[in-house]
Nucleic acid binder design. Structure first.
Lengths: 239, 239
DNA sequence: GGCCGGAGTTGATCCCGGTCAAGACCCCTG
DNA sequence: CAGGGGTCTTGACCGGGATCAACTCCGGCC
């Protein structure tokens, strides 16, 4: 039986990030070049927000966060969700202040890497430089791939794609890909997918009715990953 | 009287990229660390395409290109337009092959920076490293800001925002911001904005009818930048 | 326990933008 | 210059998702 992903307290992955370069590896080396501090961000609190000075990159060690893009006239858009192993704040490189919000959706633990020092460290740890630019490039690819989904898929298929993406990311961290708890509300999913929350709700209900998934509030089980996959226009990537 | 932006032959900006760090500056230094080659890409030709090995970054020196994201089931989405001073190919950093297409919309001249050498050069030219990561971060910000527009603005306002964005980029290169020639077709604009080409056409006609712009096929004049701006939900950035 | 507010679901209706189709216009090529 | 294909525009109609609204469910709190 799967164990659903329900960390009520701050904790990292059950398995040490299988099949991924361990985050811990750089850390000792890294600490020789800068002061890495740990931060706890409680659910609902900001890790950083629009207008605050940019002085560090952040590595998510545990928890779950979202990033929101803001416009001057008050519009808002969720641009992504971040979990263990994800880098945050990279979009502000080259700026004096952050231009978006990062909000914890559950209590989270973050490693703070002061920014100018990171650049210097890159000169001494070439591997870090590779890791950093790769992280930036992955960010671009992620965003672009969602642009494609939003630009070309109807509502229900976007939701299916969203569930599969979440599942595969959880799986890479060692959590169950078939049974998990959504950490964000319908409205956040809707904003991210350029939909309204009622539409997301209807899409989930319909996918359940088709027998592809089961949903109860925030608890999700993927019952037929194959069908969910070709519904989302992507070959099944998990399992 | 404004001179419209109609380079029929390959040429760079009329003014040497005013108010911007000159691209030329790095070049001599750069050539000491790698072989920079010039490439001509004719209108309609690919600079690189999905599946081809990734071995270089590209700096646009003249011309105009688009990037397209592709899905395995044949869907396609224009993710951006590139002009003089823009870096291309950065989204493939960390991969062996490109994952999107880059197509010239007019004859273009590109400087090719072989990729592993660029990384090494970063170790010797710290400024290059800053420039590279800044370019990557700007890419992310650009994408996110379009996600916001697509997720929160109705069709006509997206088109208005598109015109203003194009205008401000042309202005930074020394071209007229009020009078220019679109280098892409309606279908490309539509794909980029997650619309259909008929909708873009109607939006342009309506903006013209409102007196904000004038359009004749691909020739565009911005008649009322102020109104266009608050229609697009952004304060006027040009002029 | 009872109250309350936020989150989620579901239904009814509306409308923006998609779809389908026709025609205009332009450029290319023979 | 005529023909033809691609691009753009415009109209008529349709439909997916937005909007508005009612209701349920759950958790928190007095």
């Amino acid at each position: 039986m799967d164990t659903p992903f329900v960390p009520s307290t701050i904790e990292a992955s059950p398995h040490p990030a299988a099949g991924e370069q361990p985050l811990e590896l750089d850390m000792e080396e890294l600490q020789r070049h800068m002061v890495v501090t740990r931060r706890i961000v409680r659910a609902g609190q900001y890790l950083y927000r629009n207008g605050q000075p940019f002085h560090a990159l952040y590595l998510v060690h545990a928890g779950f966060l979202k990033t929101c893009e803001l416009s001057e006239d008050g519009r808002e858009q969720v641009t992504g969700f971040r979990m263990r192993g994800d880098m945050m704040g990279v979009e502000s490189i080259g700026l004096a202040v952050h231009t978006c919000d990062a909000v914890a959706l559950e209590d989270s633990q973050i490693w703070e890497l002061p920014y100018p020092p990171v650049l210097n460290a890159c000169l001494h740890i070439p591997e870090l430089q590779v890791r950093l630019s790769t992280a930036l490039a992955e960010e671009i690819r992620r965003d672009r791939s969602w642009m494609l989904a939003i630009g070309t898929l109807p509502a229900e298929q976007r939701v299916a794609a969203f569930l599969l993406d979440l599942a595969s990311r959880l799986a890479r961290l060692g959590f169950s890909a078939r049974h998990f708890i959504l950490r964000m509300g319908r409205a956040d999913i809707a904003s991210f997918l350029a939909l309204k929350h009622e539409t997301v709700s209807r899409a989930l209900s319909h996918l359940e009715q088709l027998g592809y998934i089961s949903v109860l509030r925030r608890e999700v089980k993927l019952l037929d990953v194959r069908k969910l996959g070709n519904c989302a226009g992507m070959p099944c990537t998990i399992q």
